[in-house]
């Protein structure tokens, strides 16, 4: 895969993310804010942007969003759990809900 294709994929992913974020926020603002881990200001701003503005934001060689886990050990704990895959998901969700609080 050459770099042009990769860049295109990054931009597509950015735009998909932004569009989905908008949809979620319009559907249920508080729940979306929780899912997206956005501050109130940022959530309101994203919601107000036009599709043209969104695609301008998306047009970059970097990702607009990043992993919400800061701590690699934490992720290692989640993926390293051997016992019960359902519990692993629950654990991930639990730790991520906290990641939201830590970053806000």
């Amino acid at each position: 895969m050459n770099i042009e294709e990769l860049l295109e994929e990054i931009q597509d992913t950015n735009l998909t993310y932004l569009l989905l974020a908008q949809r979620l926020l319009k559907e249920d603002y508080a729940a979306a804010q929780f899912r997206l881990k956005l501050t109130d200001d940022m959530a309101k701003l994203l919601m107000s942007l036009s599709t043209r503005q969104l695609s301008r934001l998306a047009r970059t060689n970097q990702f607009l969003f990043r992993l919400c886990f800061d701590n690699a050990d934490q992720v290692q704990k989640i993926v390293g759990e051997k016992r019960d895959s359902a519990m692993m998901q629950t654990h991930a969700s639990l730790l991520m809900s906290r990641a939201a609080a830590a970053n806000a």
Partner: peptide, 28 residues
């Protein structure tokens, strides 16, 4: 305990970080 902690963690984020009202946050 694990389920309760997941639920309460979400509730706490909604109320403390996002300023959701108590019972709305509870339902959400």
């Amino acid at each position: 305990n694990i389920h309760s902690s997941l639920f309460y963690g979400i509730y706490e984020t909604l109320t403390q970080e996002q300023g959701c009202k108590r019972i709305d946050a509870f339902v959400k």
